[in-house]
Nucleic acid binder design. Structure first.
Lengths: 156, 156
DNA sequence: GTTGAAATACGAAGGCC
DNA sequence: GGCCTTCGTATTTCAAC
C-alpha cells in the first residue's frame, strides 16, 4: 500500500479548500495532466485517505446557531457507548478522553433551551454521572487540517 | 431573502453525506427535476447557507493522528486574538467560550511531542496565562449537522 | 503519467404553471 | 416565484500509448 506523497498532500489541500474544482485545474496546479490528477484522487478515495466529499453548511441557517462543548463524567467505562451518544442528533462529535471526564461532546442546537434538553438526554445515558457544559460565545475559525497552499506548486 | 424550506434541508442533508451526487439523482431524491435541484443548490451557495464543498481527509493519513482539546486561560480579553491562534497551523478550531478559560481550541498533531510544542506556542500568545490540554483516546464519531435521510423523501 | 475520445453532467435559456 | 425541458459546453471517465 503506497504512502501519501507530496503531490497527494497538495491535491488534498486544494480539495479541502474547494472540492468542486475540475481535475484539469487541479492537475495544472500540481504539474500533472487531468487524467493523472483524477487517478491520484480516485486512489486516495479508494484507500480511505479521502473519507468523503461534503458541503459545509452554515449552522445558524439550519437552526443550529448555539454551539457548546460538554464534558461528560461517568462512573463506569464508556468505551462501548458510542451508539448512545449517536442517538442524540444534536451531538456533532463525541470523543473518549483522558482526564477527569470520560467523554467530550460537541453539541449544536437552535437555542439554549434545546441545549438544556440535550444535557437532560446525556444524563439519561447509562453510566453518566455528570456534565459540564461550556457555551461558545464566538467561533474564531473552523478550518481544514491542511494549510492552504499560498505559493503556487510549480515555480519556474 | 427567502428562508430555507424543507426541501432545501433535504438537499443539504444529502449533500452533507455525499456532495459528488449528480443534480439528477439529487432531484429524484426530493421529487424535483435536475434543473430545479441545481437552481436551489445554486441559491443556497449564493446565500451562504452552503459555505463550500470540501473533501473529508482521514487525519492519521496526513500525519495528524493525535487529537486534543485545549482550554486556554488568559488574563486579558482575547476577543481580538483570532489571528494569533490562526497562526498556529495545528489548531483546527478556536472558539471564545464562557467560563473560567477564555478560548477552547481543537488541535491535531502527529505526535504528543508536537502537541507539547503547540502548547508552548499557545503560551507565547499575548495574554495567555495557562493551558489545560485534554487528549482524545478514541473518537466515537464526527458527523455533519443534519441527520441522514433514512426514509426516502418521496413516499407513494 | 500522457493523450485522445465517448459518455455524462453541468449550467443557462426559455416557456409553463 | 418556482419548476420543467432543452440545448451547448465543459467535465468526467475510460481506453490505448
Amino acid at each position: 500500500m503506497p504512502k501519501v506523497d507530496d503531490v497527494d498532500v497538495m491535491l488534498l489541500a486544494l480539495l479541502q479548500q474547494d472540492a468542486t474544482r475540475s481535475y484539469a485545474s487541479l492537475g495544472a496546479a500540481v504539474g500533472l495532466s487531468a487524467g493523472a490528477a483524477h487517478d491520484r484522487v480516485r486512489k486516495l478515495r479508494e484507500r480511505g485517505v479521502i473519507r468523503g466529499t461534503r458541503v459545509d453548511v452554515e449552522p445558524a441557517a439550519v437552526g443550529r446557531g448555539v454551539l457548546a462543548f460538554v464534558m461528560v463524567e461517568s462512573t463506569s467505562w464508556m468505551g462501548d457507548s458510542a451508539e448512545a451518544f449517536a442517538a442524540v442528533p444534536e451531538i456533532q462529535e463525541a470523543h473518549v478522553i483522558a482526564g477527569s471526564a470520560s467523554v467530550l461532546v460537541k453539541v449544536r442546537t437552535a437555542t439554549t433551551e434545546q441545549l438544556q434538553d440535550v444535557l437532560r438526554r446525556l444524563y439519561a445515558i447509562d453510566g453518566v454521572s455528570g456534565t459540564q457544559a461550556t457555551v461558545v460565545l464566538e467561533t474564531f475559525f473552523e478550518r481544514p487540517l491542511l494549510p492552504s497552499p499560498e505559493g503556487d506548486a510549480e515555480p519556474a
